[in-house]
Nucleic acid binder design. Structure first.
Length: 838
DNA sequence: AGCACGCCGACT
DNA sequence: GTCGGCGTGCTC
């Protein structure tokens, strides 16, 4: 049998299957999706079997054998292999990158090498190495670690290679996993012992061994061959481990290693909840979803529901319906809103069937949760982005909550968008997708509403828009006030708080209610600027301002890691007026303390949330009313639900409006709408105050009125005028090199070649022409970050429309560069803007 | 990505 | 005359 294997080398040249013979003893075990160790170019590499086929006589003589099988059960299933292949094409990444993204990092094996002395050879070679090396080899063979040897005897590397070639020494290597399964030592009483009368067993113990007797009795009373971890025994009976060991020595007990699963939620109790009675609106939505679930045909719903309309309950009941058919469900949530509150709702309804995967779990915990899914113990996976690859075999439902969130796009290769992958995966399984949001992304909204505006199912469509406009219990949306900060300035108020916000805060303090303050900034960097000469500290390797880290008193580049001490005087003009600028969360905090003496503030930013559970802990403190104000960036806006919050203030709504990003207005609208939903979710009425220098901007006006529809219409008009998605699709090709002239030359060449290829296919037509298939190539121009890690960066933007295989076009162009020197030195990065295929 | 093979400068 | 630089090319 021949296995086609994708080897774990992320390079363009090796990004294809290689053939290996499946050795006889592995024939029963190697499957599509298996992870194997294979000899490749003189070493052993990890690889994935993507196909199996019968041997043909033509090629087998040059083929090598699979060296080892790395897992008892294949970590990947055929559907994921197919999905990976689709991803590698669509997102222009190697197959191995796509495959690797699907399994926990714990399963990324690395080669480990050992060297041993070949016994049956003569001793004459021993004079060819130094005495210390020979001694070391003799001591450690046959498990002498190669890496250790190379570190200790670097000068003798060449001679060692020769000795291996001459068959005096032998090199062995195998793949070692990053993380092993956690084992606990456990004991059980073998049947033949347990069948004997207890007194007969006692005879084998010393009369004085009272503790051993206790243990023996305890084990004797267990059900037949019940395995119990030793720690449990010692805890229960308050005895030492050695006591148990003594019984193992006497063969009264047998010790084994028990695979243990780390349960990140161990010891927490989740209150069981029953399905709630749905409101009329929820019921209508649920019925539509139930129909497609029952049909088991792929379908995508965009569920637009105002904050507080009870989307989660609809999710829960949909999942329940899906589980009843014996199919599994995936729930995706933005990383930041995957809070214990959220987990609790799902665990409360579905109990242990829920597996949770997020970045705050350790590698081992994540691996264990993944294994629970893989072996069928778990039927519901809830997690961030990568949980879309949960290895379920019969997927019935995928839910993407807050589908507009930008964190669903992965920034590193493979640069996939979770939404697109979800729709694709659902197609393969006949599963239903629910995209939920109060403020859907324009591309989803347009795709769903064009596909099916009335929300009625029809046979020929695969998507529909569903909406919920009423809040559960008919609570009113909070009153939103927009303050024009220009007027504050005219009224000689130079503080960052408007008079209105100041009053409102004062009022909450008096009443003992809580407030949330949002500093609307993307990122949280604090940079350093001289107030005298406006010199800004920049990274010498990247075109990026250095960020200031308070804890370590250094300035650091967060793209390349370059760091230096924070200066006390300006390096350019030696002025002492060098200051930290940035998020200003600290500045806001200081001002709050000045204006409201004794105020208790919890600040959430990079500095305060870097620890493992810091984020969760801060929120807990706030929830238990240990603070009056929660102050922070975007992260305070997501999914929080505190009963005593009656005021939400946005310090400067327009800071995110003027970013060089065509989605800036959309992001601002979404953020403002979301924070507005934070206030007054319970019995106390809420108030929202938004401060802005451009209060007339449509993103601000419409968010004040909670008017998604009007915002969309205005924004669509802009997008159409400027030629941006959803009126076209975008792909950005970024190229980088350390020599600017060469980079410029190659990128111009690239654009020219791409145009030529597109023209050849008859699609190089301006978008304005109205042709169904059209493409424009813009650039090359310097990237927004013009230099990174000493490499200059140029980018080309492709705008296109219609059924154009943009990835194939780009790859086809790059493929033309036969000159290896160019191919190697220039680095390419290809970014496909998310597009909803429905 | 590694690692081997191969063709040109500074050393015993 | 050899050691070693890293440019080019291959890995089932």
């Amino acid at each position: 049998m021949i296995a086609k294997v994708i080897v774990d080398v992320p390079s363009r040249q090796t990004d294809r299957p290689f053939d290996y013979i499946v050795p006889y003893h592995l024939q029963e075990w190697v499957e599509v999706g298996s992870r194997v160790g294979v000899p490749f170019g003189g070493r052993v590499l990890q690889g994935f079997v993507i196909q199996l086929q019968e041997e043909s006589r033509l090629d087998q003589h040059k083929l090598k054998e699979i060296a080892e099988l790395l897992d008892a059960a294949p970590p990947l299933l055929p559907d994921l292999i197919e999905l990976a292949s689709w991803m590698s094409h669509k997102y222009c990444c190697s197959h191995t990158q796509a495959l690797q993204a699907m399994i926990p990092a714990a399963l990324k094996g690395k080669e480990e090498r050992f060297i041993s002395i070949n016994d049956d050879e003569s001793d004459e070679w021993k004079s060819r190495v130094s005495a210390p090396l020979l001694h070391w080899l003799e001591q450690h063979s046959p498990k002498a670690n190669w890496t250790v040897m190379m570190e200790q005897f670097p000068d003798e590397a060449a001679e060692i290679r020769k000795l291996i070639k001459d068959n005096k020494l032998q090199l062995q290597s195998y793949i070692k996993d990053k993380l092993a399964v956690k084992k606990v030592q456990a004991v059980y009483m073998p049947m033949q012992v347990q069948q004997q009368p207890f007194d007969a067993l006692l005879d084998q113990l010393a009369k004085t061994a009272l503790k051993q007797k206790e243990v023996l009795q305890y084990m004797y009373e267990q059900p037949q061959e019940q395995t119990i971890p030793i720690v449990n025994v010692t805890k229960e009976l308050e005895c030492a481990t050695s006591t148990v060991r003594a019984l193992v020595e006497k063969e009264l007990l047998i010790q084994i290693d028990l695979e243990q699963q780390r349960d990140p939620y161990a010891g927490r109790h989740f209150k069981t909840t029953e399905p709630l009675l749905l409101t009329e609106e929820q019921q209508l939505v649920f019925e539509q979803i139930a129909i497609t679930l029952d049909k088991q045909q792929p379908y995508t719903f965009l569920l637009q529901g105002v904050t507080g309309s009870g989307k989660t309950e609809v999710y829960l009941q949909s999942i329940d319906r899906c589980l009843k058919d014996g199919r599994q469900a995936i729930v995706l949530v933005p990383e930041i809103s995957l809070t214990p509150q959220m987990v609790e709702r799902f665990k409360g309804r579905f109990g242990d069937q829920v597996a949770v995967m997020h970045s705050r779990l350790s590698g081992g915990e994540r691996y264990d949760e993944w294994r629970r899914i893989r072996n069928g113990e778990s039927m519901v996976a809830i997690g961030a982005r990568s949980a879309i690859f949960a290895p379920f075999q019969q997927l019935g439902l995928i839910i993407i909550d807050e589908e507009h969130e930008s964190s669903y796009k992965q920034e590193e290769s493979p640069k996939y968008h979770t939404r697109d992958v979800a729709v694709r995966r659902a197609m393969m399984h006949g599963a239903t997708v629910i995209l939920g949001s109060a403020t859907p992304s324009l591309e989803s909204y347009v795709a769903a509403s064009m596909s099916n505006p009335k929300g009625k199912l029809s046979e020929d469509k695969r998507a529909a828009l569903l909406s919920m406009t009423k809040r559960v219990n008919d609570r009113a949306l909070p009153e939103v006030t927009v303050i024009d900060m220009k007027e504050e300035l005219l009224a000689n108020n130079r503080s960052m708080f408007s008079r209105r916000l100041h009053e409102a805060l004062q009022e909450r303090l008096q009443k003992g209610e809580q407030s949330v303050l949002l500093l609307n900034r993307r990122g949280f960097a604090t940079f350093i600027m001289c107030r005298s000469c406006s010199y800004t500290m920049m990274c010498p390797h990247c075109d990026i301002a250095l960020t200031y880290h308070q804890k370590s008193q250094v300035v650091r580049c967060h793209y390349c890691g370059y760091a230096e001490q924070t200066p006390t005087v300006c390096p350019a003009c030696t002025s002492e007026h060098i200051r930290f600028f940035g998020t200003g969360t600290q500045k806001v905090e200081a001002e709050l303390a000045k204006l409201f003496p004794g105020i208790r503030v919890i600040r959430m930013d990079v500095d305060t949330t870097s620890g493992k559970n810091a984020h969760e802990q801060l929120l807990k403190q706030f929830e238990s009313r240990k603070a009056d104000v929660l102050l922070g960036t975007q992260m305070v806006a997501k999914g929080l639900d505190f009963p005593y919050v009656t005021l939400v203030g946005v310090i400067a709504a327009d800071t995110s409006l003027h970013l060089p990003d065509f989605r800036a207005a959309e992001r601002t609208f979404q953020l403002l709408t979301q924070v507005a939903g934070r206030a007054g979710r319970h019995h106390l009425p809420g108030e929202v105050i938004i401060q802005s220098y451009t209060p007339e901007h449509y993103a601000i006006v419409t968010s004040q009125q909670h008017d998604y529809e009007t915002f969309v219409q205005q924004e669509l008009q802009h997008r159409r005028m400027l030629g941006y998605p959803p009126y076209c699709r975008l792909a950005v090709v970024t190229m980088s090199h350390d020599q600017l002239p060469l980079l410029s030359q190659v990128s111009h060449q690239f654009v020219e070649d791409l145009r030529q290829l597109a023209d050849h296919e008859g699609v190089l037509v301006p978008l304005s022409s109205g042709f169904p298939r059209s493409l424009e190539v813009l650039g090359p121009v310097a990237s927004p970050i013009a230099k990174m890690k000493d490499r200059y960066r140029f980018q080309c933007v492709l705008k296109y429309r219609g059924s154009i295989d943009i990835a194939a076009l780009i790859q086809g162009t790059l493929h033309q560069y036969k000159e290896k020197s160019i191919q190697k030195k220039i680095q390419y990065s290809i970014d496909i803007d998310p597009q909803v295929i429905m």
